[in-house]
Design a protein around this nucleic acid. Structure first.
Lengths: 342, 342
DNA sequence: CTGAAAGCGCTTACAG
DNA sequence: CTGAAAGCGCTTACAG
């Protein structure tokens, strides 16, 4: 391993000078700089990142805690896409990404505090928020820089990047109402997620505004899994009075809903319409193609890193939360007139 | 930030002793150990990871290079699942994961060498292999510990975890042959991937063994995208002589194939049968459900980390490559007798 | 513009 | 069983 001392010796200068060349210090002569750089190239010198971190107290690394599959939060398509946004922007800004996961819920705090107290990372990206999330409380108390992709009710002052999920669900429900539906159900996600709550609220607002009945039995809580959507249908469709349209929390769940309805002999959109969220590529390929709210998943990740880096660089944060725009993509699943028999 | 010196002072011992307590050195008295540990707890002491790395020359971190979306290698479902396997096993063994991505192909070597020369990581997991992959050549030459999820033809001695893709494709094609098909096509992935080649070879072997014609125009190269499958169909199905069955390289591509066939007015499995790879959850929910070869994606990631850690710990590697078993899951898409009209 | 020195927080022979 | 000392590879006031 070639170190700064080797280069110094070979170049006939001091280690300090080599260090200054590496960091483009202004008060270094053209000539010295060129010579040192040539020798670094020849020797294949790369600065030791650990040593640099130790003295600079900065790692140029962001931490990310993987949601645990046990929690069923693992929405593959969402996750892959948001991660792509995160990694892309981090890399572009010269940051690496350190990924860990907790083996259990009790372990989560320990895992994150290893990153924080061990000074492994400069900042942390949190991927989702439960209501009263202990991780948020911890990071906030430690005053450790972090950004939440999502929204925290208990800590409104932390850095957040989120959709306007209330409005997004309001838009989804309103679209169904505009189609003439009066009995609209909601297939939700885990009840302890802020996301589920916000979308439920938007759904309820739209119903209230249109003076439509809100029926508790039409609201089913589940997980971000196809099975959840599937099971929800056997519940909802066995009711004496059934909804004619559904707002579904996630495209994957919507696939399960679709299959559940098919098995029960209901057609979409003929018998029942639906709108879901995320607009994953496959939603366009489902039969029928699913109307879905595009939430700008990649943007969520990208912007989260962007604002976290602003925070780290001590820049003023102008907008908080940062709201990533959503857009309802209407497809066949929610348009009864436009139906095609297959 | 509380350091080892603070603890030493508070406990009335030397920093060396504290260090030994932290690392469970055997020759430390019960009593001293207890006292030091109590004070560490009180003070909330966490060892500085960077400092430890600097002297131990080990990071307890594995590196992973994200495939670039530009290369269209980004098979979301595969990627999420393999990553889950990687992170789970790494975490279980006390390792973190450092993730970077290259912004361009030229940049890849630079990105990986930053990890290697900068001593950021102890080992590297490579996620896919192109034929004559320059990253493999580089890591091999540097003698840096790494594992490839996939197979390298040019470097047969490196550590590899892979499916027997030749056999997997052979099984897929044989299944179709057993159903009585004689005209079988192959919708492949990017031609520069070893994966595509291996599966093509298996497909060809099965045809040859059954003395079936191999028609070049029935073999379409594409990407791991739905669009690829979609476009492949307009090509293949416009031929004067069309295949009656298809082996498709990836479930996502198969979704595109399915849509392409539907738009052209062909039914699956009535007019054309298909089998694909990966067995992602949605393949079961497609209409019709898609027969797919389960390649044990999670296992691939999990085993890759496991053997990389063995390598790092200097253990003898017994089997190389490690072969993760595959299994063909037969569903409606490849069984004409069992068809259901929808 | 450049160098000598101290120090980042830890580990580990060496000596006792 | 424990401590003093040297050192991991780098940075950065301080002095010139």
């Amino acid at each position: 391993m070639v170190t700064i001392k080797d280069i110094a010796r070979l170049a006939g200068v001091s280690p300090s000078t080599v260090s200054r060349v590496v960091s483009n210090h202004p008060r270094i002569s053209e000539e010295t700089s060129r010579k040192v750089k040539r020798i670094m190239d020849e020797q294949g010198y790369h600065p030791n990142v650990m040593a640099k971190s130790l003295v600079s107290k900065t790692t140029h690394t962001l931490g990310i805690l993987l949601p645990r599959p046990a929690e069923e939060l693992f929405r593959n398509d969402f996750f892959g896409e948001v991660l792509r946004g995160i990694v892309t922007q981090a890399t572009r800004m010269g940051y690496d990404l350190l990924m860990t996961t907790a083996t259990s819920e009790q372990d989560e705090l320990g895992t994150i505090s290893r990153l924080v107290r061990g000074r492994r990372v400069d900042g942390i990206v949190l991927l989702s928020s439960r209501r009263d999330d202990p991780l948020i409380a911890y990071l906030n108390e430690e005053q450790f820089p972090f950004v939440l992709i999502g929204r925290s009710e208990s800590h409104p002052d932390i850095l957040m990047v989120d959709n306007d999920n209330v409005r997004a669900a309001y838009d989804a429900a309103s679209h169904l109402i505009a189609q003439g539906h009066e009995r609209i159900g909601f297939v939700s996600g885990p009840n302890n997620l802020t996301l589920s709550h916000d979308r439920l609220r938007g759904y309820e607002q739209a119903l209230a505004e249109a003076s439509l009945p809100k029926r508790p039995e039409w609201i089913v809580e589940g997980e971000f899994l196809q099975e959840s959507g599937f099971r929800a249908m056997s519940l909802v469709m066995s009711l004496p009075e059934r909804p004619t349209a559904l707002v579904v929390i996630d495209d994957n769940v919507a696939f399960g809903v679709l299959r559940g309805l098919a098995e029960l002999g209901y057609g979409v959109p003929d018998d029942i319409c639906l709108v879901s969220f995320n607009n994953i590529p496959l939603s366009e390929l489902a039969s029928p193609p699913i109307s879905s709210v595009d939430i700008g998943t990649y943007q969520l990740g990208y912007s989260a890193v962007q604002s976290l880096l602003h925070l780290l660089q001590g820049e003023r944060i102008h907008h908080n939360p940062i709201v990533i725009p959503h857009r309802l993509i209407v497809r066949e699943s929610s348009i009864q007139q436009a139906r095609k028999r297959s």
